[in-house]
Design a protein around this nucleic acid. Structure first.
Lengths: 193, 193
DNA sequence: CCGTTTCTTGAATAATCATTCAAGTATTAT
DNA sequence: ATAATACTTGAATGATTATTCAAGAAACGG
């Protein structure tokens, strides 16, 4: 008889950045009420509990990242050109001192590994989904003749994912962008050469 | 007039694994008393507080890892053979389901980024030190003629470090060893080729 | 316009946490 | 042996935490 007053997407996005800022454990309910503008009761009504809010935020993160992926790999340019732009964008993400220096998935994965099975499963599925997306992009590049077929696209995708994980961790110790860009360029070379 | 009754190294090593198990934030003082066998008062007497225990554990970790590094790069074999063994050992570390799936440095780095300046600084210095060690090893390989001098040893070391970071994160989602070994092999190839 | 349903509010609750401290115990120097 | 000195013990403390719930406010159906 009455609709919720808050914008679910906005709430989830602010929860996302709050979780990325401090990590799940150190983000207090008070932090979350401040970040989302929601009162404790509303959060518990809408998402069950803090953990439910994290799961909902992870789902929203997946949606947002998938949309971004589609934008980068629209098929308008050469696949390898699109991939280069995608990597450069990740470097920019790492450089910008915005709260969310890390990706929510890897941040939560590092924190929750072997502690919460359902969260771990959700994250692992999302990451596997992303990796598969990259594998398909690379396979497309191979059928288009942009990329050698000597190495399996799944293998290349795994190596790419590993490199991006590493790049994000590296960024924590090296705020300067130059080095990160150099590493991303090297990674791109090793994939495409 | 009386010496401490506990073995400092043993205490720090058990604290290390406790922190790696649950992360710093979720490791309670109760967990630490259980892990170390020390009572709260003793911990506070010896290390000031929980944070002090972490800093001491990080120092011990650095000592232990440096010793391990020296063991792997003793100069008895070809540098590249030693490097390969070093990487294979990391893969084994990731596979073994022991508590410490991650390295304490990267685990703490992910958790504490931009929250505790001194901890962050300590970790960053340790990681930089490790990277420098690898750079020197690679430079030695170059002077010995085992490795092309086309790429700068510092550059190669950064890429290697990035790869190892990524490998560790990747391990969280892929407990199976086969894939990890394949990735490590590829990383070795990209460095040495 | 009224009654019912649903959402919102925020103070109260209960648990957990890091930390302290005073009493107890062992060791050493004399 | 004894006093002085240090280390150990673990219950008490106070702060912080996630969570609940009863009262209040808003929206809709009739």
């Amino acid at each position: 008889m009455r609709n919720a007053e808050f914008d679910r997407e906005k709430v989830l996005r602010s929860a996302m950045t709050a979780f990325m800022d401090k990590g799940y454990g150190k983000t207090s309910m008070q932090d979350l009420t401040k970040a989302t503008g929601l009162h404790p009761g509303s959060i518990y009504c809408a998402f069950d509990n803090k953990r439910g809010l994290l799961l909902a935020a992870l789902a929203q993160y997946k949606t947002d990242r998938s949309a971004e992926f589609q934008r980068f790999f629209s098929g308008e340019k050469l696949v390898l050109v699109e991939l280069k732009a995608y990597l450069d964008n990740i470097v920019q993400e790492c450089i910008s001192c915005e709260a969310a220096k890390a990706c929510l998935l890897t941040k939560a994965l590092n924190e929750m590994a072997q502690q919460d099975e359902e969260v771990q499963k959700t994250i692992t599925e999302n990451l596997a989904n992303w990796q598969q997306g990259l594998a398909e992009v690379l396979a497309l590049a191979q059928t288009k003749g942009e990329l050698s077929t000597k190495r399996d696209s799944q293998h290349l995708a795994r190596f790419l994912v590993m490199g991006i994980y590493g790049l994000r961790t590296f960024a924590h110790t090296h705020p300067k962008g130059e080095t990160l860009q150099e590493l991303a360029d090297q990674l791109f070379l090793d994939i495409s050469a």
